[in-house]
Lab assay of single mutants.
Amino acid sequence: TLKVHYKYTVVMKTQPGLPYSQVRDMVSKKLELRLEHTKLSYRPRDSNELVPLSEDSMKDAWGQVKNYCLTLWCE
């Protein structure tokens, strides 16, 4: 499951381990945003700071799954 905080919160079913490009595509379609305006980030467990997502950091983000849910933020 993927939970995304935006102006409102959406929850989507997804497969764990998807690459950033696929996750961003899913989120942009769900929120009806243009792909270039979809910026995603996540919060590591040991931090209060949001970390921007990229293809490289997506593996780390999937490591933050809690209760089968990855929580992301969209700007």
Rank of each mutant, 00 (worst) to 15 (best):
T1I: 08
L2P: 04
L2Y: 08
L2V: 08
L2R: 01
K3I: 14
K3H: 00
K3T: 10
K3E: 07
K3V: 14
K3L: 07
K3P: 00
K3Y: 12
K3C: 02
V4W: 03
V4P: 00
V4I: 14
V4Q: 03
H5T: 02
H5V: 09
H5C: 03
H5D: 07
H5S: 03
H5Q: 03
H5I: 11
Y6L: 09
Y6R: 04
Y6M: 09
Y6N: 07
K7G: 04
K7S: 09
K7R: 12
Y8Q: 12
Y8K: 13
Y8I: 07
Y8A: 08
Y8V: 05
T9E: 04
T9R: 01
T9S: 02
T9K: 02
T9M: 02
T9P: 08
V10K: 03
V10C: 09
V10T: 09
V10E: 04
V10R: 00
V10F: 11
V11E: 13
V11Q: 10
V11P: 05
V11S: 11
K13L: 04
K13F: 07
K13N: 09
K13S: 12
K13Q: 12
K13D: 14
K13Y: 11
T14L: 10
T14V: 15
T14W: 02
T14D: 05
T14A: 13
T14N: 07
Q15H: 13
Q15G: 05
Q15W: 11
Q15V: 12
P16Q: 13
P16G: 08
P16L: 14
P16F: 15
P16D: 10
P16I: 14
P16E: 15
P16R: 10
G17R: 05
G17W: 09
G17Q: 05
G17P: 05
G17C: 03
G17T: 06
G17D: 14
L18M: 10
L18W: 04
L18F: 05
P19E: 08
P19L: 08
P19S: 13
P19A: 11
P19V: 00
P19I: 09
P19R: 08
P19F: 10
P19D: 11
P19C: 11
P19W: 10
Y20W: 01
Y20I: 04
Y20D: 07
Y20L: 05
Y20E: 01
Y20Q: 08
Y20P: 00
S21G: 11
S21K: 12
S21E: 13
S21H: 15
S21R: 12
S21D: 12
S21N: 13
S21Y: 12
Q22F: 00
Q22R: 09
Q22C: 08
Q22P: 11
Q22Y: 09
Q22I: 13
Q22S: 10
Q22H: 03
Q22M: 13
V23G: 02
V23L: 09
V23A: 02
V23P: 00
D25G: 09
D25K: 12
D25Y: 10
D25R: 10
D25F: 06
M26C: 00
M26F: 06
M26G: 02
M26Y: 10
M26P: 06
M26T: 05
M26S: 02
V27M: 07
V27E: 03
V27T: 01
V27Y: 04
V27Q: 09
V27L: 01
V27A: 05
V27H: 03
S28G: 00
S28N: 04
S28R: 00
S28E: 03
S28D: 09
K29H: 14
K29F: 06
K29T: 03
K30A: 13
K30H: 08
K30C: 11
K30G: 03
K30M: 07
L31R: 01
L31K: 05
L31M: 06
L31A: 01
L31V: 00
E32Q: 13
E32I: 04
E32H: 13
E32Y: 08
E32V: 02
E32F: 02
L33W: 04
L33Y: 00
L33M: 08
L33G: 06
L33S: 02
L33K: 01
L33E: 00
L33A: 00
R34F: 03
R34S: 14
L35P: 15
L35A: 15
E36I: 04
E36L: 04
E36A: 06
E36Q: 08
E36H: 04
E36D: 10
E36K: 05
E36P: 00
E36T: 05
H37E: 15
H37P: 06
T38H: 03
T38N: 01
T38E: 01
T38Q: 11
T38I: 14
T38W: 06
K39N: 11
K39G: 10
K39E: 00
K39I: 13
K39M: 11
L40I: 04
L40A: 00
S41Q: 08
S41M: 15
S41K: 14
S41V: 00
Y42K: 05
Y42S: 01
Y42D: 05
Y42A: 02
Y42H: 06
Y42T: 00
R43E: 00
R43S: 03
R43A: 11
R43Y: 08
R43D: 04
R43P: 09
P44D: 14
P44F: 06
P44G: 05
P44S: 14
P44L: 11
P44Y: 02
P44T: 14
R45K: 14
R45F: 13
R45Q: 13
R45I: 13
R45S: 13
R45M: 10
R45C: 14
R45P: 10
D46Q: 09
D46E: 12
D46K: 03
D46V: 02
D46L: 03
D46W: 11
D46G: 15
S47P: 11
S47D: 07
S47L: 02
S47H: 09
S47T: 12
S47K: 12
N48M: 13
N48K: 12
N48Y: 10
N48C: 14
N48G: 12
N48R: 11
N48S: 13
N48L: 12
E49G: 09
E49L: 10
E49Y: 10
E49R: 11
E49I: 09
L50V: 05
L50G: 09
L50R: 08
L50F: 10
L50Q: 03
V51M: 09
V51K: 08
V51L: 11
V51H: 05
V51P: 10
V51F: 07
P52W: 01
P52T: 11
P52D: 06
P52M: 01
P52S: 06
P52L: 09
P52I: 05
P52R: 07
L53W: 01
L53R: 07
L53V: 00
L53P: 04
L53H: 10
S54A: 06
S54L: 00
S54G: 11
S54V: 03
S54T: 15
S54M: 03
S54E: 06
E55Y: 07
E55S: 04
E55L: 08
D56Y: 06
D56K: 13
D56N: 10
D56L: 05
S57R: 11
S57Q: 00
S57W: 02
S57G: 09
S57C: 12
S57A: 10
S57L: 08
S57D: 01
M58K: 07
M58A: 06
M58Q: 07
M58T: 05
M58L: 03
M58V: 04
M58W: 01
M58P: 00
K59P: 14
K59F: 15
K59M: 12
K59C: 06
K59L: 10
K59R: 13
K59S: 14
D60S: 02
D60F: 08
D60Q: 11
D60G: 08
D60H: 11
D60K: 09
D60I: 04
D60T: 05
A61I: 10
A61R: 01
W62E: 01
W62K: 03
W62S: 03
W62T: 04
W62C: 11
W62Q: 00
W62G: 01
G63W: 06
G63H: 15
G63S: 13
G63C: 12
G63T: 08
G63R: 11
G63A: 15
G63D: 14
Q64V: 04
Q64T: 15
Q64W: 05
Q64H: 13
V65S: 14
V65L: 10
V65Q: 13
V65P: 11
K66S: 13
K66N: 15
K66T: 12
K66W: 05
K66G: 11
N67S: 09
N67D: 14
N67A: 05
N67E: 09
Y68I: 01
Y68P: 08
Y68K: 15
Y68V: 08
Y68F: 12
Y68S: 15
Y68D: 15
Y68G: 15
C69T: 15
C69F: 01
C69P: 08
C69H: 06
C69S: 10
T71D: 15
T71Y: 06
T71I: 01
T71L: 03
T71H: 13
T71N: 12
L72W: 02
L72P: 05
L72M: 06
L72G: 00
L72A: 01
L72E: 06
L72I: 09
L72C: 03
W73S: 07
W73V: 01
W73N: 04
W73F: 08
W73L: 00
W73G: 05
W73Y: 09
W73A: 06
W73D: 02
E75D: 10
